[in-house]
Amino acid sequence: MTKRVRVLVVDDSALVRQAISHGLNQDPSIEVVGQAVDAFMARDLIVRLRPDVVTLDVEMPRMNGVEFLRRLMPQYPLPVIMVSSQTRAGCRVTIEALEAGAVDFVTKPSGMGIGLEQMLVELREKVKIAAAVDVSHWRKRRDVLPRIVKRKPMTLNRTGDLLVAIGASTGGTEATRKILSQLPEGFPGIVITQHMPPGFTSMYAESLDRSCPLKVREAHNGDRVAPGQVLLAPGGKHMRVVRRNGGGWEVVCREGELVSGHCPSVDVLFESVARAARAKAIGVILTGMGQDGADGLLAMARAGARTIGQDRQSCVVYGMPKVAHEKGAVQKLVPLANIPEVLVRLVAEGDHG
């Protein structure tokens, strides 16, 4: 019999603890081994029960989830899934928790009866994925944010004629942060689709903006794609790149049906870039479960764009890049640490090409 994933549920609400525990135990491959009402009880139970995965409430009394993570991960690294509210404060702390080592997050429904089952389905899937994630690199780690590498600003002739499109899911928030923190000012315009619900993308963009030399913000309909600027697809809306009258590109952000299981969808972004920018684009597919982005990246490659996939060893989840590579969409599989350097080189080659 396959070993079950042992889970510790941490939440100050007895009702939420019961609902999450019952929902997780519905999956025969998951076993809830304990419940904790706060970070201090969680600390003791982690040492005693040695769970494989922890689900952690974002907002708790005495010590919130992110502060607990900052203390836990350097001493006792464990895969953690955050359970977040969709309040502004909840969104902000969730982004901080991802920076501090959380693997992923789910959002609490507005009521325990509305959307609860959907949340539990998502949580069960993410718990099983998290159990296989290696978080040992957080041991003895003190720096939460990646160090910004100060590069000489780009002064290429045609940076405005080039476009970089990035797609990511599970583990992608920090992978993207590591890439952007090492790109130079004046780098060609970047468009990103990261799987996130409404409310979280604006907070994530603000967080990236504080830690990167480029200007990062959540995209709005009609925003221009410009050198030195990063546009992040808003949660709940597909983002497409279209040609502007007079040259260059702008984005169109609209609500829509799920595509490849997501809104925003990486496939939607990449396919629009293939049509609008063709050979003047670079596509990057990062860590994430599922296959969103694979078909879109293939369309980009067929249109003449250069394409990069994050390699297996550096992915939190080698799903999206794996499918893209198997479809023949990835021209280069690159470790996360090397992607900034590869992008700078490809941009320089494109500038002179």
Rank of each mutant, 00 (worst) to 15 (best):
E96F: 03
E96D: 15
T87E: 10
T94R: 04
A102H: 02
G90H: 08
N64A: 07
I95K: 01
V80D: 11
G65Y: 07
V106T: 11
V58L: 11
E99N: 13
I95C: 03
E99I: 02
R71I: 09
R70A: 09
S85H: 05
E96Q: 15
T87S: 15
A97L: 11
S84M: 10
V80T: 07
T94S: 08
M73D: 01
M82Y: 03
R70Y: 03
E59S: 13
V103S: 06
E99Q: 15
P109R: 11
E67G: 06
F68I: 05
A89Q: 15
P79Y: 04
P74H: 03
G101M: 06
V58N: 10
Y76D: 15
R88K: 14
I81T: 08
F105A: 10
K108N: 08
L98R: 05
A97N: 02
T107W: 08
V66K: 07
R88F: 10
V93W: 10
G90W: 05
V80C: 03
S85A: 15
N64I: 05
R62K: 15
Q86D: 11
L72W: 03
A89H: 13
V83T: 10
L78H: 06
I81W: 09
V106D: 09
T94E: 02
F105K: 05
D104N: 02
Y76K: 12
A97Q: 07
G65I: 02
V103G: 08
L98S: 04
P79R: 03
P77V: 05
E67T: 14
P77G: 09
Q86K: 13
E99H: 12
P109N: 04
V83W: 06
R92P: 01
P79W: 07
T94F: 07
I81R: 06
R88W: 04
L78N: 01
G101L: 00
M60G: 02
N64V: 06
L72A: 00
V103H: 01
E67R: 14
P74V: 01
M82Q: 01
E59V: 13
P74D: 02
G90L: 10
T87F: 11
F68V: 10
T107S: 15
C91R: 09
R92G: 09
I81E: 07
I81G: 08
R62W: 10
I95R: 05
N64H: 13
